[in-house]
Amino acid sequence: MARSPRSDDERSAESGKRLAADGGSVSDADGRLSDLTSFFRERPRLRTLAIAGPPYGLLVFFFAIPLLAMLVVSFQTDQIGGAWTLGNYVDFLTSETYLTVVWRTFLLSVQVTAIVAGVGYALAYSIVRFSRRTTLLLLLVILPFWTSYIIRMYAWINILQSDGVLDSILNLVGLPALSLLYTETAVLIGFTYVWLPLAVLPFYASLTNLDADLIEASKDLGAGPIRTFLSVTLPMTINGVVTGVVLVFIPTFGSFITPRLLGGTNNVMIGMVIENQFKSAFNWPFGAAIGMVISVVVVALLVLATRLGGGLFGTGGETS
């Protein structure tokens, strides 16, 4: 129910009482806050603008405008003020080399996503079902985020390199050294480590909302653990799974640092190609065109995932 607005006199009188009772500054601040509240309450459209404006403004300023600028540049021959052309898109989409890179990137991203989803789901499930120190475990999961991405990759170089930490441990227990650095396995390990928290958190959120009684009911009805998982647990947490998968797949697709630092000679990804266009080839229009195509592909995959998952941001277990 709307309150009746107070008159200016009433407000002044109340303000004066506050001044007398509490001293000037606090009551002045209260009065201004009250004025501001009333001002916006009486102007719902302005209030909506004040609330929704900043986030929309940020989106427009830092996402939509740069994206639009990239789109414009991708149709030009030069970075600034070049002639209009479709050549950048034609060059990219008709090049076997670049399409091969995209395909490899896709395959690697799928591998990374599958590994992270499997490991992440098992981790989240064990945290929810079998652990009492949930907060501590979740804290440990997100702990790596407190360290720079580059530093984490250098840590993995020290672990995986010849005679590094991993090889030393293997030698201690009498096993042969693996020397994993500069292999595709190293890239998979690096990606899995980096993206695991992004998957575990939505998995954990969806598993937390899962009604444990349903699992018990499934078992009571004669289903084994695997069937219970496939027919109850997984379907009831599919939104969280899809969210985690999307959060891992997208950044993996655009990555260039991890394969560069951990990979060998066969780990080129499309993100590295785009980076080169901007940083060394100075062919910004071509880099922008590749970026636009990849963005469209990723958005298409996002839409597909959303349809499969029934709602990207619904991480609860209440699937329809």
């Binding site: 080399t97 670049y98 890179v101 490899r104 066969n266 080129v268 590295m272 080169n276 080839a281």
Partner: peptide
């Protein structure tokens, strides 16, 4: 030349 070098390098890595 820069463009050709970049194409070559991408092709080599791929």
């Amino acid at each position: 030349v820069r463009s050709r070098y970049d194409e070559i390098w991408t092709a080599v890595k791929a």
